[in-house]
Write a protein that binds this DNA or RNA. Structure first.
Lengths: 315, 315
DNA sequence: GAGCAGCGCGCTCAGATGAGCAGGAGAAGC
DNA sequence: GCTTCTCCTGCTCATCTGAGCGCGCTGCTC
């Protein structure tokens, strides 16, 4: 891309050598012998070929996975796993289904019989659970309280139960709302035997799946479910993203809020203790929230689509 | 292209490693250290990436030159130089101009002050001559007699004179027709001092430019200029191509004909003695003739367009 | 639980490779 | 014509790479 290699004869010679080297897999010495050049000359011509863009190397996959974006995302944020799907992003429901399937496949690949799976509540997590094949006897732990979602069929309890029963593992569930009006109620709920039993399994969780929301109207189920004063209070504290109820600033730092006291779900430090948390964000608008999430170090995996991945990387 | 590398995580890992190796230029050992793998594992993943088509290497040029086709043509026929232009092939005149310019550039690159240039008569050779920059004092030798062509402004004499005067070299020309009605006339003409002097320079010629015709109506100026009996006689002898008056069978073998006795121009053996003869064929219909020409070993250079190059290679 | 086949993995060493250096041809300037 | 500079070319040596070999793990059979 930088400069032209030279005259016509030189360009063609370079192309010829590049073909021999890169496509036919011959060694530079062989090529040098064949063309009557020194191997150093061959090496220089090959360098020139790459520098000038005569030889172009591209990495891509014929399936849905955009391997190059996946690799860049994984690399850029030091993730354990990243999967970026090249799919149209006009229909959120279809997007969620596709990502859910991919996340299910990824989870099935990386999970071992020793793992304990944690599931937070998010629509994408439900989609994943639906597509999940039976896992090898994996116990499943509920990470967050239930939320009543208009049009959402599954509660967090249902999702955990389904996955556990398909896998033949134990289901550690509890019936409690995600948020309550005051801290005292929350404390009381957490002390309930059922809730306490489920929470006791949190430190054992080794793999988890969560959603990501941007703290703005329509981009976080939690945000939309809260009264206006809570929304504003969190926004004033600099909350940018919520990862299934864990609040993060734009830098990825956990934000301590009064609301946390009134929630029944996993906290930032507990989430950090989980070796791999996989998130399934979608929608270009959430780019800021995803950046915050990846920077936080709380999550190790991401399954998303090209538009969002590009938006995240374009910083 | 053969098989899928494996699961999602493996594919992305492979892509990540491929990116590091091919795009960032890191060594396999560095990559192995970075990813916590052995260098052998890295090597195997890279092999798999290439085999599965995840890494694709293509060779192309942003200019008019199709470097890949050029290289393949050069390689396939063991040529000294091949230049294939990716240009529209609907208008023969424009095609000829483009190829003429490219041939001129090629010739200017490869010619040295020690070279003696020979020019046969062909429309493409005229086009090349028009585009030729001044050469370093190169003597120019006329290789073929003159032909009166409807609409063709330059005779072989004119072309040779022009090039020689632009270059400041000697012009070895002669005034004689390309074909005459009987062998005796041809012999007499060849013994004329002027003709003999020009022919005496033939063995000194080191670089030459010629056209290629397919022995069929409308595809060879020589064919069209001859009476029907000559055309048929040569066709019966298996003539497939004429390289500025040198007749070749489809195999590329020179065909000895009675007509040769009646021509004032270079012969097959004299042409073979020239270290590099550059031809400028165009028009897909001539593919057979070009194949014959390249197989003959008489020529060492070709300047043509993609459609014809592809047709020639598709054997 | 023993034996066996298949396979993934790492080690070895000859051969390939790249950075740096020295010699020589050609261009520019005096 | 001479000097100097620059670019191009080929060489050396330390490092990297790849084919082949043997080990050990896994899953299957008896």
């Amino acid at each position: 891309m930088t400069a032209e290699p030279g005259g016509l004869a030189r360009i063609v010679l370079t192309a010829s050598i590049a073909r021999r080297y890169y496509l036919d897999g011959r060694s530079k010495v062989e090529i040098a012998d064949e063309f009557g050049l020194s191997r150093f000359k061959v090496a220089r011509l090959l360098d020139a070929a790459r520098d000038s863009g005569l030889v172009r190397i591209e990495i891509r996959h014929q399936g849905e996975v955009d391997v190059d974006l996946s690799a860049r995302l994984q690399d850029r944020y030091g993730l354990q796993h990243a999967v970026v799907l090249d799919i149209p992003d006009d229909d959120p429901a279809s997007l969620r289904d596709h990502l859910g399937r991919a996340a299910a496949q990824l989870l099935a690949e990386v999970i071992t019989p020793q793992d304990v799976l944690g599931l937070a509540w998010a629509r994408a997590v439900s989609a994943m659970a639906r597509a999940l094949p039976p896992l090898p006897g994996t116990p499943v732990v509920q990470l967050t309280g239930a939320m009543s979602l208009p049009g959402g069929p599954d509660t967090s309890v249902d999702v955990v139960r389904e996955v556990a029963s398909a896998s033949g593992g134990a289901a550690h569930v509890f019936y409690a709302p995600f948020t309550v009006p005051d801290a005292a109620t929350a404390r009381a709920l957490r002390q309930q035997p059922e809730v306490a039993r489920a929470f006791a399994h949190l430190p054992a969780v080794t793999k988890a799946v969560a959603g990501v929301g941007l703290w703005a109207p329509g981009l976080s189920v939690l945000h939309d479910a809260l009264p206006e004063e809570d929304r504003d209070a969190l926004a004033r504290l600099g909350v940018c993203a919520d990862v299934s109820g864990v609040f993060l600033s734009a830098d990825g730092e956990p934000v301590v809020t009064e609301l946390s006291e009134r929630m029944i779900g996993i906290g930032a430090e507990e989430m950090r203790a989980i070796p791999e948390v996989i998130t399934i964000p979608y929608g270009t608008a959430k780019a800021r929230a995803v950046r915050a999430t990846l920077r936080s170090g709380l999550v190790g995996g991401i399954v998303t689509h090209t538009a969002l991945a590009r938006a995240v990387l374009e910083e």
